[in-house]
């Protein structure tokens, strides 16, 4: 898909040549850059860390004189409220919009308004369908595929698997679930004994799994994604059953429970892949460069998929835990693009 971005590319072309040599460096005459960040759901550890990470990245650019102001608005689950937030940002003439949307489609109208106002839009974390927006996030399908493939490898293609998903209808949950089912369908030895939803909530996941365990005597592995692994592990422990082969979240609390289980001498087979809230940092990096007039290299479907590096296994568990020793238990393993990696995305 061709990269057709109007409005800001032409305005920034002159600056881009200046910027090409040394990092972002817009000309000193450039107007101070204001970023409007509109977030949907908030009050979860992941989203809080995402906002903090975005602010950290922004502060770095602010110190370098590359950005002037970061406006953060969090609408909660209310789409109408997020529309109002984005409208206010357009009206206060931010230079670039960053949106973590509640839905892939509901902001289409207001993204059109941003387009008319000539304000570039970066949809991060949650991808949106409108082609004007640049998506920055992880490849949810690929992410889910890694989880399911790890399960299949651990089971050597044979076993009874329970699958727990996040929120029904949420695009990320749907993509991951589809990936799980695609992988399992290719392995006839894998039998799915139960599948359902834990709402990305540890307590809910634990309660659901407790019910499942009572009804399902034989489970070899649990394939779950993000934010429910700890609850599932606790359900097994509470039922007096050994923790099965299972996936979980790259969150400190889960990793601590994992270590405890292993240190107690149990044979643990666990896996987690990072889904970094620091995607906010990467997105701020992209936003500041676009606001400075730099031009992205063409992206397929206008979407940049952040390449995840961190996978947690028994081998690197201790090392990764040590690296987040000073962080709270709710902390997710973070990773983001460096300045030079960010520069490589641009012409």
């Amino acid at each position: 898909m061709a990269f057709t971005r109007r409005g800001f590319t032409s305005a920034g072309l002159g600056l881009a040549s200046v910027a090409a040599l040394g990092g972002i460096k817009p000309s000193q005459a450039a107007a101070p850059v204001t970023i409007g960040l509109s977030n949907g759901y908030f009050g979860t550890e992941w989203r809080d860390q995402m906002i903090d990470a975005s602010k950290t990245q922004f502060a770095m650019y602010e110190n370098q004189g590359l950005a002037h102001k970061l406006i953060v608005q969090q609408a909660g689950p209310d789409t109408a409220a997020q529309i109002q937030d984005v409208r206010n940002m357009i009206r206060s003439r931010v230079n670039v919009l960053m949106i973590d949307a509640n839905s892939a489609t509901a902001l289409t109208g207001v993204i059109h308004e941003a387009k008319r106002a000539g304000i570039p839009v970066i949809a991060f974390d949650q991808a949106v369908t409108d082609p004007y927006a640049i998506n920055v996030g992880i490849d949810e399908y690929d992410w889910g595929k890694h989880y399911a493939e790890w399960i299949v490898a651990q089971l050597k293609g044979q076993g009874r698997v329970a699958v727990m998903d996040g929120v029904p209808g949420h695009p990320a949950a749907v993509a991951r679930r589809t990936a799980f089912m695609d992988v399992f369908a290719k392995n006839p030895g894998i039998k799915i004994v139960w599948s359902g939803y834990g709402m990305w909530d540890q307590a809910k996941a634990q309660a659901v799994m407790a019910t499942v365990l009572a009804a399902t005597p034989h489970i070899d592995a649990v394939c779950t994604e993000d934010g429910m692994g700890l609850g599932i592990m606790r359900a097994f422990q509470a039922a007096g059953r050994p923790v099965p082969i299972m996936t979980g979240e790259a969150q400190k609390s889960f990793l601590l429970a994992w270590k405890k289980e292993r240190d107690a001498g149990h044979d643990v087979h666990l896996f987690a892949r990072s889904n970094p809230p620091e995607i906010g940092r990467t997105a701020v990096g992209v936003a500041v460069r676009i606001a400075a007039g730099r031009k992205l290299k063409p992206l397929p479907d206008n979407t940049y998929h952040y390449p995840i590096k961190v996978e947690v296994t028994n081998d690197n568990l201790d090392q990764l835990l040590a690296s987040v020793a000073d962080k709270p238990d709710g902390y997710f393993l973070g990773e983001y693009l460096s300045e030079s990696e960010l520069d490589k995305l641009f012409v």
């Binding site: 909660g76 689950p77 209310d78 789409t79 109408a80 409220a81 529309i83 509640n102 839905s103 489609t105 509901a106 902001l107 289409t108 109208g109 207001v110 209808g169």
Partner: peptide, 16 residues
């Protein structure tokens, strides 16, 4: 509200 979201969302109206 639909004229503004241009799409459907089963949770769109919750806050009203």
């Amino acid at each position: 509200i639909s004229a503004q979201t241009l799409s459907g969302d089963p949770r769109l109206g919750t806050s009203y």
